[in-house]
Amino acid sequence: MRIYVTSVFVDDQAKALKFYTDALGFMVKNDVPVGDHRWLTVVSKEEPGGTELLLEPSEHPAVKPFKDALVTDGIPATSFQVQDLNAEFARLRGLGVAFTVAPMDAGPVRMAVLDDTCGNLIQLIEMKRNP
């Protein structure tokens, strides 16, 4: 058994696709029409065969209160790993991406938190190198 997909609930799939590809730099893996929505997944360009991220519609009534409560407490919906957090922070801010937490130390990692414009906060982490 392997984990081939994980998901974030997005308010608008088209808008999410733009953000997750144009800003975050992922690429589309699957885009299949399913009813009113799409089975829409992206993957990292660094790992095209890796776990897919499903941009899942926020349609179910339980989703909005759940997402809102997480955002209120500043809790990210998911987390992505980067090689150089400061460089990504600068690059994304240059693209107009809003961060709720600027790069900071958090134990064995450094982290920052951004707004994906689709109702989620997303954590970026950089693993600290072992001294």
Binding site: G74, G107, V113
Partner: peptide, 16 residues
């Protein structure tokens, strides 16, 4: 101006 999440992360970072 720190969120609950950020305070948790900062507190973990400060003393493990």
């Amino acid at each position: 101006e720190r969120s609950l999440f950020e305070i948790c992360a900062a507190s973990f970072s400060a003393d493990g």
